[in-house]
Nucleic acid binder design. Structure first.
Lengths: 153, 153
DNA sequence: GTCGATTCCTGCAGGCATAAAGTTTCTTTC
DNA sequence: GAAAGAAACTTTATGCCTGCAGGAATCGAC
């Protein structure tokens, strides 16, 4: 039995558990900051931004299923968020002419403009969050995380 | 047909953005797996487990505020989850004798037993998730993540 | 003491996430 | 071609999470 300081995350424990806890902590801290910034400065949310970002990389639009797979979220979830973006005029959707089951979603011209603004702000926040973390360490971390992602898939 | 595989994240971009996206991806993938396992095998959830885990490290119990700070979640959120755990008889709470504003929450004996079971399963899932990721890489990753967490605080 | 500010917690509205069930539209099979 | 099956999407039920409003208790400055 090891006593630990309440409030801090496991300073001891097995290696794999410690890696996981640290990973989750870092992700949560940064994600929380981004979410707050999106809300405060643009009255929007991270999930909405994620959808816009994914669509921005797909000039021809994407089907709902492609969107949900790209974002690692459930299918039914995308439905509601896309509808909101649609009501705001940022995305448009039309029925796939080759498969009436699918709707193809893409950015509107206005959506593309709005996204550019959001993306720049988003990048600034991330840059700011990682500002004190040396570039060389970032490179190492990126390499390790890429390997990790491959190994857990 | 595709310039980018829909399920993969930005192959190009600036270093800091790529680090952040990879970090988030890895965290999401593993977290999703854990959540599913908790639901399937124990009909419980990751947040509930997190609370039990935090309380398990605090023999004398914690106040609600300490819990929410340790878990990086909002104060009002802890209220509902603790109530559920209370209804299941896993935790108990009493008013702090030194400050009647605070309630002190702690594991019940049964809660401690249940947590031990969950913790072992949880550890197994994490170990399994990281099984293909070399121990040496894990060590490097842990070091980098620890530095990262410090630098973003 | 007592008034005001602060702290701790709970309640509530709104948003995102999942799983599971339900619809509509292909596709396969005969 | 018609029925069985699969696929894409939506809907529904449930749960977590945040921010904010509000009540109760405490602390501080008179």
């Amino acid at each position: 039995m090891e006593k630990t300081i309440p409030g801090s995350t496991a300073p001891s424990g097995t290696l794999d558990l410690r890696v996981w806890v640290r990973l989750l902590d870092c992700a949560k801290i940064i994600e929380k900051r981004l979410r707050r910034n999106f809300e405060d400065q643009f009255s929007t949310t991270l999930p909405r931004f994620d959808i816009l970002a994914t669509l921005d990389r797909a000039p021809d639009g994407l089907r709902m299923g492609e969107l949900s797979r790209a974002l690692l979220v459930s299918n039914g979830n995308v439905t509601a968020i896309v509808r909101q973006l649609q009501e705001q005029g940022l995305v448009s959707s039309y029925t796939d002419p080759e498969d009436a089951r699918s709707a193809i979603v893409s950015l509107t011209p206005n959506g593309r403009v709005q996204f550019a603004v959001l993306a720049e702000a988003h990048h600034g926040w991330v840059r700011e969050a990682l500002a004190d973390f040396p570039e060389d360490s970032q490179r190492q971390l990126l390499t390790l995380l890429t390997q990790l992602k491959t190994s857990i898939l």
